[in-house]
Nucleic acid binder design. Sequence first.
DNA 1: CCAAAAGTGTTATCGCTACACCCATGA
DNA 2: TCATGGGTGTAGCGATAACACTTTTGG
Lengths: 234, 234
Amino acid sequence: MSKAEKSTFYKDAEQLMVAVDCIIFGFDKDQLKLLLFKRKIYPFKNKWSLIGSFVNRKENVDSAANRVLAEYTGLTNVFLEELGCFGKYNRDPAERVVSIAHYALIRLDEQKLELAESHEAHWFDVDEIPKLILDHNEMVTHALEELRRKARYQPIGFELLPEKFTIPQLKNFYDSIYQKELDRRNFRKRILAMDILKKLDEKDKSTSRKGAFLYQFDKKKYKKLVAEGFNFIV
Amino acid sequence: MSKAEKSTFYKDAEQLMVAVDCIIFGFDKDQLKLLLFKRKIYPFKNKWSLIGSFVNRKENVDSAANRVLAEYTGLTNVFLEELGCFGKYNRDPAERVVSIAHYALIRLDEQKLELAESHEAHWFDVDEIPKLILDHNEMVTHALEELRRKARYQPIGFELLPEKFTIPQLKNFYDSIYQKELDRRNFRKRILAMDILKKLDEKDKSTSRKGAFLYQFDKKKYKKLVAEGFNFIV
DNA sequence: CCAAAAGTGTTATCGCTACACCCATGA
DNA sequence: TCATGGGTGTAGCGATAACACTTTTGG
C-alpha cells in the first residue's frame, strides 16, 4: 500500500501526541526508591518529573518506554510493564498529549549512575516524593498500588534485589511494600516452600556477625511452576 | 497561554492517531457474550470488529470510550475500564494508530437493541468469536483474562446480571467465567457471608417450579466493606 | 562473653471443601 | 405424586498465624 493511498483512510481523524512516562523503582537498604529527574524542556523546565519521551511514528509504544529507560539508566532487558493511559485532554497545558505510563523495576547496583547524573536524575525515597509536573504524582500513586498488587502474585522482589540476596533482605522488601512487618519464620517457610530459590555457599555478613546465606532466584523452576498453574503469594 | 505560544512547545514531536476500542461483555442464560459489529470504514470494511472510535483533540480518552458505548448501546454510566494500550507501530496497515482498549460490562436487558442493530452489531458467545480485524482478537483474549482476574476481587457479576437476580443465576455467571462448576452450597454460603446482598420477597420462577428468591446488590454495604479493607473473593 | 541478627519447629485456629438430605411446586 | 431445581448443615482436613528458643560470631 503506497503512502498516497494510506493517507486517504481515516482522514477525518485528529492527530495528537503520544508519550510514554516511566516510573522507575529501585530498592536499597529497606527502602523503596524512585528515580526522578529535572525536566529539560519547556514548559516546566527544571521541575521534577518522571522520565518520558514522545512516541515516534515508526516506533512501538513499549519500544519507546524501553528506549528512554536505556537512555537514562543504561539498562536493557529490565522488568517494564504498562501501567495505564493518562488521557485527559487538558492534562498538559502546552499541547494535547496522551501518555502511556509504564513502571520499571531495576537493580540499583546495576544502574549506570553517571548516565542518571548526566540527566540530573535523583533517587527519592517513595515516601518523600516531591511535587512533580502535570499528573506525574498521580502516576506514581497508581504505580505504587500496582506494585503492591503485583507483588502478591509475581515474584517481583527478585527484579529489585541484587542477583544474590539473603532471605532477610527479601523480607525487608516485602515489609516495605506492604508497610508492615511480616513474621520472620513464616516468611522464610513460605518462600522456601515455593522451591524457587537456590541456596548458595556464600554468606553476606554486612548486616550481622553471624551472616546470612545468599540465595539466587531460580527462574527455570519458577517458570515451570507458573506453567503448572502456580500462584506466588506472600 | 495563547495558541501561538502553545505550538512552539514539543515541536519536534510526531503526531499520530489515538483510538479507543471497546470489548463489550454481556451475560445471558449461562453464557458470556460479546458485542461485535461490521466495520463501516475502509480498510476492512464489513469485517467483524470491536466497536471503536478515534479520540478527538478536545476529548478525554475515557470520554471517547464512553461516547462510543453510548452510541452503540444507548447506555451511559456502565462499568467501563481501561484494558491497556495496543501500540505496535504497524498494527494498522492504513495508518499509525495507537489504540487504548477498554472493556465494558452491560446488562443485556437494558441495552437498546435497535441501536445495536442499526450498526449491524451482533452478540457472539465468547467461545465462538469470529476472526476480527487488526489485533482485535488479541484484545478480546486480554479482556477475558482481565475479566477472570477481576471477577475474583470485585463483584463484577452484578454489573452483568439484571438488577434483580437469583443466587443460582449469579453462580451460573461465575461458573461460566471460571469454566468449571462451583459447589452450589459453598457458593451460596460465601456470597451471603459477605453480606452485600439484599434478599427480596419476590421469586423468579422461570427456571424451576419451586422458584428462587431474587436478590439485589447492596452497593452501600459493599463500599463500606471495601473502605474497611475487604477483598471480594469467590 | 555478650550483643545482635540468623535460623529453626510446634501448636491452635480458622477457613475451605466435600458431601447428603429436605423443600416447594407445577404438571 | 413425582420430577426438578432451590435451599440448608456439618465434619474433616489443610493451610495459616502465632509464638520462643538456639546458633553464630565479631568486638
